[in-house]
Design a protein around this nucleic acid. Sequence first.
DNA 1: TTAGTTATTGACCGATTAGTCAATAACTAA
DNA 2: TTAGTTATTGACTAATCGGTCAATAACTAA
Lengths: 185, 185
Amino acid sequence: MARPREFDERKVKQALMHVFWQKGYEATSMQDLVDATGLLKGSLYGAFGDKRALYMVALEHYDHTRIQQGIDMLGGEGPAAVKIANLFDSVVEAARAGLFSGGCLLCNASVEMAPVDKQVEGSVKATIRRLQLAVEAAIGTETSEASMVSGFIICTYLGARVLAKAGAPLQMIIDSRDRCLQSIG
Amino acid sequence: MARPREFDERKVKQALMHVFWQKGYEATSMQDLVDATGLLKGSLYGAFGDKRALYMVALEHYDHTRIQQGIDMLGGEGPAAVKIANLFDSVVEAARAGLFSGGCLLCNASVEMAPVDKQVEGSVKATIRRLQLAVEAAIGTETSEASMVSGFIICTYLGARVLAKAGAPLQMIIDSRDRCLQSIG
DNA sequence: TTAGTTATTGACCGATTAGTCAATAACTAA
DNA sequence: TTAGTTATTGACTAATCGGTCAATAACTAA
């Protein structure tokens, strides 16, 4: 029918995600995306759209991979406290390893883009909601205030991401995790 | 001795702060700063330095005004729980009023600039530390784990700022405030 | 009045920005 | 083989970016 695409869509989306995750929207140039994906500018525009559309693709991919990973983690067997502790420990681990400065694309997008882009705001709110519901489900049977507590846990989680990016002492994140977990039992 | 400056330094710093606070570093152009301050580009460079230096000026001004305001609030008379509740309520109020989307320049700088600018990281870490010590002092006489709890409160506070910017339901911030306060008493 | 110093001004610079497009290539259905 | 469709390519554009600078203005000490 027509000429087939030569690139692996998943790999390209992953590359887009990594660049925006590390540098943010404004600090990322189309050339950065060209370098990271291996595609030329025209191909990127042809396949996905303009820079904003590429950002949305990256955001969606982050949701479907990293966020989903977290949600899956929360859904498994075992006590809620352990699962949620793991969530925080992944922040500490990322910070220790220097993985994108321990930051999270969802958090970055909330701060940089959500206030100036309705579509990003919608996407970010939906993802936060999904994550909250997963936390709520995890602790649901253990406390009567699951909805309130889950929101609080998401809040502390996002705060931990900011602390990591700020280069705050990791002990601060660990302490926050521990204090946060006391709210469950 | 020489020609005197024609601008009010404090007003100019305030204007710089507002622009960077609202738009972030990368999304702010020199033209934005020219428009906001009323100074021409040459004057800005002459008086403060390049764009990065202007950002540092804005960050410092934020620290000396808004952050200091918060610290002063924590230092007054009354129970720690009330003071800290006020801290969170100021986030809710800012979000409700649409003041820079309820965001905080310290939080924004942590996410956008700290990972890529050592000087910003140093400044941000120092400010966070100062804020934490103020919280610690406020709750110091009421609990034996003041240091740990203060870090946790800062964490939740930053998370609340992210939630506000994401456009999350204000109830989520209020719930987080209430849960957080239970950790004090 | 003059010499020295600094502030202000606006034109100017090269580099980079996001985005476009016509030419070509690679495929398939007929 | 051919006609139709889409992907790839790289040159191209207009606008904007951060930053510089020589000319001029405003002041003070001598």
